[in-house]
Amino acid sequence: MPDTASTNQQRLEQLKAFYTAGAANDRGYTLFDLWSKPDSWLERSHMFIQWMFPLTTASAGNMYAPVLDEPTINFLRNNARAQDNLVRSFVRFCALLGLKVINTEQGPQLAIGDNFAERKTDWFTFDSHNNARITRVLTSLKLLGREDLAKLMYEGLLKLMADEPGCGIGEYAVGRWGAAK
């Protein structure tokens, strides 16, 4: 359980260690633990996303999540291990959506993964909390210097929406994604 007495500065130090040294977050999970969780666990949990993809604004869903400041953003942008772990977190989040990153002659692309048929019912066929998660991921990626991944995700989602039948994602979510990326 989170330490209610911790300050944001303490949480930011914890976030740095979480992203670079294998330390646990406020719930006792390391990044490796979170990457290893099954999709069903990640779908039900509303406390992991704020640590995997931190923002500069407080989370309404997790009052103990770190709120990024400029020194921490710079640290995470310039630390090679943090950047590698951010990419792994991005790939894991894509898998939660039933998507995968593939390499093509044109560069990396977002594609339908083996579990898309199962996962799409939790986000693609109707507006769900996962649309807000996507907005968070896009925003965090951009903040932490991975505009390339934010663009890859945004463009891949738009293509998926155009190509795949049964899309129920609304204009509001797509507008938020566009503003975030």
Rank of each mutant, 00 (worst) to 15 (best):
L96M: 13
W35C: 03
A162Y: 07
E118R: 03
T125Y: 01
Y29I: 02
A111Y: 06
R88H: 13
K120A: 00
L144R: 07
T7R: 04
S40V: 15
F124M: 05
W51S: 08
G145F: 10
Q109G: 01
L158Y: 06
G178Y: 11
R77L: 08
G166D: 01
D122Q: 10
E155A: 08
L144M: 09
W177C: 05
N131H: 15
A180V: 06
P38I: 06
L86P: 07
P165R: 06
A179W: 01
R119Y: 00
L158E: 13
A132Q: 12
I134P: 03
F116Q: 01
V67K: 08
L110R: 02
P165S: 04
A95G: 11
N130D: 10
A173E: 06
V67G: 00
R27C: 02
F18H: 09
Y19P: 00
G61E: 13
A17Y: 05
A117T: 07
L143I: 12
L141T: 11
P71G: 00
L12N: 04
P38M: 05
A132V: 11
K142R: 15
V174T: 12
L141S: 10
M52T: 09
H129N: 12
E13R: 14
V67E: 03
D33Y: 05
Q109A: 15
T57Q: 12
K120P: 00
L152T: 03
Q106L: 13
Q14V: 02
W177V: 03
K181W: 14
T104H: 08
A65D: 05
G22P: 06
N85Y: 08
I169V: 13
A132S: 14
R133W: 05
N79Q: 09
G145E: 09
M47L: 15
Q9V: 11
R11Q: 05
Q50N: 10
Y172Q: 12
T72D: 02
W51C: 10
K142V: 10
A80G: 04
T30N: 07
T72P: 02
Y19K: 15
A173G: 07
S140W: 07
R92F: 08
T20D: 06
G98K: 00
L31W: 06
D69L: 00
Q106G: 12
F48C: 13
D3P: 03
R136Y: 08
R176E: 14
L143Q: 08
T4Y: 14
L141Y: 09
Y64A: 12
D122E: 10
L143N: 05
E147Q: 14
E13Y: 10
R88K: 15
I134N: 02
N8Q: 04
T72K: 02
K37P: 00
E155I: 07
L99R: 04
V91S: 11
G178A: 14
S128M: 04
R27W: 11
T125H: 01
R81T: 15
A82N: 09
G166A: 01
C94H: 07
N78R: 09
